[in-house]
């Protein structure tokens, strides 16, 4: 008997890395999961690799696009009949720069893929969860939701904002059987890291390895976190037994954030 037997989940940006690890642990605990991402090709590949038959389904979604995020939530309900768990995992940045040089394009992209995507997905999910008086919403924040790194104003501001949004939503639906939490991972060596960090490191004037150290050295564990460590927390927060854990900014950062 799995811990999520009978539950339906949707996870943004889940063909790879953290989102994929969450999809896999949910499936292994008996949930039905909608996997999502921009690329239909990567979606097909993920489904083939996970080999979960009809319990996994792919819906393409570019998280910077409001109508696609909303259609993803509705599409999950259409496909599996209901919605119990939403993980708003998509995020990232197009580039890094000091605020004085931050372009509108880079700033607005970050606002859409991080904060607005979380807001759009949450609002639409609540429309389904409030009538059924149950639900689990998990937003993927970051340790940068409490800390700050020079040249990452776009990322940092968005993750701080997600933390605020999570707390407010938790209080709005706290007596309706719905929990809203954020997970705050430390550095995880995901595809996103290898895609966006080389440019960020260059902006910071350090090598890729030095950039990684900059994130892991302040941690107690002196190493990056893993996708499995993040997925284990997502599973715990998604269980029926976690009904009284809400508005929580759950750290998975090896002791980097002191508060």
């Amino acid at each position: 008997m799995g811990k999520l037997e009978g539950k339906v989940a949707v996870i943004t940006a889940s063909t790879r890395s953290i989102g994929r690890a969450i999809a896999e642990i949910y499936l292994s605990e008996g949930a039905k999961v909608v996997v999502s991402g921009r690329s239909a090709e990567k979606g097909e590949q993920a489904l083939a690799e996970m080999d979960a038959g009809e319990n996994a389904h792919f819906i393409a979604c570019d998280a910077v696009n409001q109508s696609e995020v909303e259609a993803l939530i509705d599409g999950t309900v259409e496909h599996f009949g209901k919605l119990d768990i939403v993980v708003l995992n998509a995020g990232g940045i197009m580039g890094a720069a000091p605020v004085a040089e931050m372009t509108d394009e880079v700033w607005n992209h970050a606002l859409d893929i991080n904060l607005n995507h979380t807001f759009w997905g949450m609002r639409k999910a609540l429309a389904h969860m409030i009538p059924q008086e149950s639900g689990r919403i998990i937003a993927m924040s970051s340790m940068e939701g409490k800390l700050a790194k020079a040249t990452l104003s776009n990322y940092t501001s968005n993750k701080h904002a997600i933390n605020g949004l999570v707390k407010v939503a938790a209080h709005e639906v706290g007596t309706l059987g719905i929990t809203v939490n954020a997970i705050l991972p430390g550095l995880v060596l995901t595809d996103m890291f290898y895609e966006s960090m080389p440019a960020t490191a260059e902006t910071m004037g350090v090598t890729l390895e030095e950039a990684a150290d900059m994130f892991t050295q302040p941690a107690a564990i002196k190493r990056p976190n893993t996708v499995e460590e993040v997925a284990a927390v997502a599973l715990m927060l998604s269980r029926d037994e976690a009904r009284n854990i809400t508005g929580c900014l759950f750290p998975v950062d090896g002791g980097t954030m002191p508060y």
Binding site: I221, A232, M236, R239, I245, P251, D253, G254, G255
Partner: peptide, 28 residues
């Protein structure tokens, strides 16, 4: 049971990456 749920996670193998954290189990 709210507290024991999180305690099991922290004690498990998957809890290896969580340390120095002050985790709220207080209903928000």
């Amino acid at each position: 049971e709210d507290v024991s749920l999180v305690a099991v996670l922290l004690a498990s193998e998957a809890g290896a990456g969580i340390s120095g954290s002050l985790i709220n189990v207080d209903g928000g």
